[in-house]
Structure formats: C-alpha cells, structure tokens
Computed example of a mutant assay.
Amino acid sequence: MCASPLSATVLRQKYAFSKIAIANEKTAPYGVAAVEVMEKYGIYNKITHKIVRGDNIAPTYQFVFTENAQLGFVALSQVIHETEGSCWVVPQEDYRPIRQQAVLLNKSAGEPAALAFVAFLKGKTAHDIILSYGYGFDN
C-alpha cells in the first residue's frame, strides 16, 4: 500500500493545499462519498473553492497523479499497490458504501462468452483479484 499513511488531519491542517480533486458528485458515486467525508469532518464548505472535479474517478486520479491537485479522493484500487506517495484509507463509516455491480443484459443472456464471464466473476479467482484491490463483498 502507500508508502506513508495519512489521516484526516491533513484535510484540516489549515487547509495547506491549493487544490483537492474529487469525482463529480452529481454523476459519480465516488464524488458523493468524497463530499460526505468532507462534510463529516466539517471542512466541505470551507474548501469548495479548492475543489477540482473529474467527470468520474479516472480523471480525478489523473489530477492527483500529475500533481495538478495536491490531494484527492480516489478509488483505493487505484493506489493500493503503490509503493510511493501517501494515502489515507477513509474509514468505511465516514461515507455510505459504494455498491459495484455486474449485470447480464437480456440481449446477451444466451451468449456463451457473456455467460462464461459472469461465471468467472462469481468464481474464486475473480474474488481474489477483487479483494486484492481493496474491494469487499456484501453477504
């Protein structure tokens, strides 16, 4: 995981950053979660002028990766295997869970490749990969 862990304190340190990246909360679940976290810590309204928004989590990560934003709320899966930099794994209780799903469309219901892919997603190999990127499963 990240080389040096951070905490919520970084968000509160006199707001010593010029830009913080989040996904657009109107279109992306990760953006909704980011706003929930900042509101919980009482800083959202104080730093709205520093927020840069990506359409989704991919451009949000790019803002941070290219250092156009000093901080950012990105998916754990994007940084879990990084050996440099720093990160704060936001406690799950600080935001509503982000539900990820896979669906099989009626149009593909009889397609062998689609059925094989869904079967793969339900199997141990896929579960191990999913877990290795920081995701969990609902019971």
Rank of each mutant, 00 (worst) to 15 (best):
G31D: 06
I20C: 05
K14I: 02
N24Q: 08
K46E: 14
I47W: 00
Y15F: 15
H49S: 11
F63L: 07
R12I: 07
N24M: 09
I22N: 02
I57A: 14
K26P: 00
V52Q: 04
D55F: 14
E36Y: 05
A16S: 11
K14G: 15
H49Y: 11
A23S: 14
N45Q: 09
T48G: 03
E67H: 14
R53M: 08
T48K: 15
I57L: 00
A33C: 02
A23Y: 01
S18H: 12
Y15G: 06
P29H: 07
I57K: 13
Y61G: 12
D55Q: 12
N56A: 10
K19H: 09
Y44N: 05
L11S: 12
A21P: 13
E36H: 00
V52H: 04
K46D: 14
I51H: 07
V37K: 06
T60N: 10
I47K: 00
N45V: 11
I20K: 01
G31Q: 04
G31P: 01
T48R: 15
N24F: 08
L11Y: 10
I43N: 08
N24V: 11
P59N: 09
Y30G: 09
I51D: 03
K14P: 08
V35T: 09
E67P: 10
V32C: 13
Y44L: 07
I57T: 12
I51T: 05
F63R: 05
T66G: 02
V37M: 11
E25M: 09
P29L: 13
P29A: 14
A34F: 05
N45A: 06
E39G: 06
A28I: 11
R53V: 10
Q13A: 15
T60M: 02
T48Y: 01
G54A: 13
F63N: 02
I20H: 05
E36G: 03
Y41T: 08
E39P: 00
H49D: 13
H49F: 04
F65E: 13
F65G: 06
K14Q: 10
E67L: 02
G54T: 09
F63Q: 00
I51R: 05
Q13G: 12
H49V: 12
G42F: 08
H49W: 04
F65P: 03
A21M: 02
I43T: 02
N24I: 09
N45P: 12
P59R: 11
K50R: 12
I57C: 05
M38V: 03
A21V: 07
T66P: 03
A21Y: 03
K40I: 04
I43V: 15
H49C: 08
V64T: 08
T60Y: 00
K50F: 00
N56D: 14
T66I: 08
S18A: 07
